[in-house]
Design a protein around this nucleic acid. Sequence first.
DNA 1: GCGGAAACCTAATGACCTAAGGTTTCATCC
DNA 2: GGATGAAACCTTAGGTCATTAGGTTTCCGC
Lengths: 191, 191
Amino acid sequence: MPRAGLTSDRVTAAAADLADEVGLDAVTLTALAKSFGVAVPSLYTHVRNPADLRTRVALLALEETADLAADALAGVSGRDALAALGGVWRSYARRHPGRYTATRLPLDAETAVRSAGPRHAELVRAVLRSYHLDATDETHAVRLLGATFHGYAALDAAGAFGHGAASPTSDETWERVLDGLDTLIRSWETS
Amino acid sequence: MPRAGLTSDRVTAAAADLADEVGLDAVTLTALAKSFGVAVPSLYTHVRNPADLRTRVALLALEETADLAADALAGVSGRDALAALGGVWRSYARRHPGRYTATRLPLDAETAVRSAGPRHAELVRAVLRSYHLDATDETHAVRLLGATFHGYAALDAAGAFGHGAASPTSDETWERVLDGLDTLIRSWETS
DNA sequence: GCGGAAACCTAATGACCTAAGGTTTCATCC
DNA sequence: GGATGAAACCTTAGGTCATTAGGTTTCCGC
């Protein structure tokens, strides 16, 4: 029998794809093993347990989104940068629901610092640079943006914005939110 | 052997308490049955399956938070109302992490309209009434507040605000965010 | 006190996870 | 080109949890 050629990375990538298809909760070692044509215990060489697998998917997704954000932010500033960064999360949550869910998993402190989390924080700070905030306000703004972007993506993904028939679309609200955040943070400007 | 006196509501309440103690994911029928001194299949009379149980916990938590919000909003308006409503979610997420997690579960459309969700939307609109927005902007604002409050509570609960030593506290950021939202929405005022 | 609804049980099955220990493949080095 | 050792992968076995089927017991109302 030919080998499946498993590695931690390949297993993680397959888990991420599967999560996007069937939801993160439905990613079981059994299903994964089947997709590789392999016995379940064989996965234990590459992954400690299902929780470890999910953490790896989270780390993968954080790397991917950090890359996407870095690309999207190249050469833009101010409201455009806000739109670019928020847009990355919004479209990622829509395109990769399983991976996005994984990015919301709580990581233990040690894993968190090794993740792309700090890189994300740095990217948000890059967006804010054009607003010339003092250090404290910049931290406040990082948190505000993180909360708003992720809260919005989560509500959107949960379908919370479709319940009224004549209500404005999510896209319309999104533009309004960006405008709002832009003026809000601009009002904190010090210089 | 005396009966345990199970009902759907009592099982749900116990599940909610257990979720707050050990986390929503650790709420198994096995653990619940043990806490009642009852065999696992006995729970099936009152609850369809674990997913149904979690949905019931979500509905319970949504009712509870709607009640808390209604109380907190009595007699306040403007920024105070913003603070009151956001404070309800923030403290609920802290005090009842399992229940709070349950409120974030996606509900199917039918269940959603029967839940306290619409009541929550109405409460947010009540907060916004003092800002005199037109109907469309009010909807945008409902979504903005929902996203920000829940995003903030989630990040806070995940401990995302403790990583820098000299960084401002979550409480400080919270006040800043409230100020920001207040001015933001005030700037949408039409009348 | 009797009849029936509902509460609760035991037994059995199946999905998933996980540990232990053996076998096969493959690259590498003599 | 064959031995060697590290991985990759396997079978076996056992654990927790969810779920169905079908029985027994409690308790309320008459």
